[in-house]
């Protein structure tokens, strides 16, 4: 697709998701590291809730008659543990954001791989597999034994490792649950509309660049320049500004700041490249001589 910015074409984390309207949303896979952090947050919430339930029950027991409340307390605790362990993930992922609190915090969401609506059975399937991928390895990790038992535990850990490390061995970073449920986890960044850099300072007559001075760069360089301006690190701006000045043979004026120069050059370059774009010419980078 010609209309897609070049610097993202080779990104291995981009997957195409074509809407029924025919537009490719170019979604981004969530890296394993971010999913791991989200999982840790969720586990912390689960353990925290269990502790809270236990403390609340303990506090109630000291207030009320032990014999009367003890059975109810046991039931609440057992059901609470069961529901948290098995349905915490399922209930949140069935919600409107298709994400647990941990995923929401990191900016991830669960999506059906075919782009259709995420169904409850897919969510149940992907989370039932946690039994194998999460709880069983945890069990083995905390298990203690001697001689032959120790070897069995070790074999168990190695065996579980296959499922734990599953996401590292396929290009879509699917875990076993995603594999059987037909889902994957995508980045769902909070969209923030940044200011358009060309509105920053009007390009006054001082900075009148000649067409030849603009034609040395292409889209790729423009986007690097955009990054530099948005990050606004003085050293990076100085280096880039000097490089551009040398390349286009610009005579630096005494009062000229790097930022002002780069802004003006960015605005002029973007105008020039967008004009060419309207005529169907996309100058990809400085090596593109079309």
């Amino acid at each position: 697709m010609a209309s897609i910015a070049l610097n993202r074409d080779n990104d291995p984390g981009i997957r195409s998701l074509v809407t029924p309207e025919g537009v490719d949303l170019r979604v981004r896979l969530a890296p394993v590291s971010e999913r791991g952090v989200a999982l840790l947050i969720d586990l912390a919430i689960i353990v925290g809730s269990l502790i809270a339930i236990t403390l609340a029950i303990g506090a109630l027991l000291t207030q009320l008659k032990f014999a009367e409340t003890w059975p109810a307390a046991q039931i609440v605790w057992m059901l609470g543990f069961f529901l948290l362990r098995n349905f915490y993930f399922t209930i949140f992922e069935c919600g409107r954001r298709s994400a647990t609190p941990g995923k929401r915090l990191i900016g991830l969401r669960v999506v059906a791989r075919d782009g259709a609506a995420l169904t409850a059975d897919a969510v149940v399937a992907r989370n039932a597999m946690r039994e194998l991928e999460l709880y069983l390895p945890l069990y083995f990790l905390f298990a203690r034994g001697e001689s032959i038992e120790a070897w069995i535990i070790l074999a168990g850990i190695v065996w579980c490792g296959i499922f734990v490390l599953f996401p590292f061995f396929n290009r879509d970073r699917l875990r076993a649950g995603d594999f059987i449920a037909g889902t994957w986890v995508l980045k769902a960044p909070k969209q923030i509309l940044l200011v358009d850099l060309t509105t920053e300072k009007p390009a006054d007559a001082e900075y009148a660049f000649q067409p030849a001075q603009l034609d040395v760069y292409g889209v790729k360089e423009l986007q690097v320049l955009e990054q530099v301006l948005r990050t606004a690190e003085p050293e990076a701006m100085l280096a880039v500004a000097d490089q551009i000045r040398a390349k286009i043979g610009w005579k630096t004026r005494p009062s000229e700041s790097d930022r002002a120069f780069l802004s003006a050059y960015y605005a002029s370059l973007r105008r020039r490249l967008e004009q060419r774009l309207l005529f169907g010419k996309r100058k990809r980078d400085k090596h593109d001589l079309s």
């Binding site: 809407t19 969209q191 509309l193 955009e226 774009l277």
Partner: peptide, 17 residues
């Protein structure tokens, strides 16, 4: 097709998704 403002395209991709 027409804009070279990467931030704008990123925003629209996230919003549309």
């Amino acid at each position: 097709a027409t804009s070279l403002d990467q931030a704008l395209i990123d925003y629209l991709e996230a919003l549309s998704a």
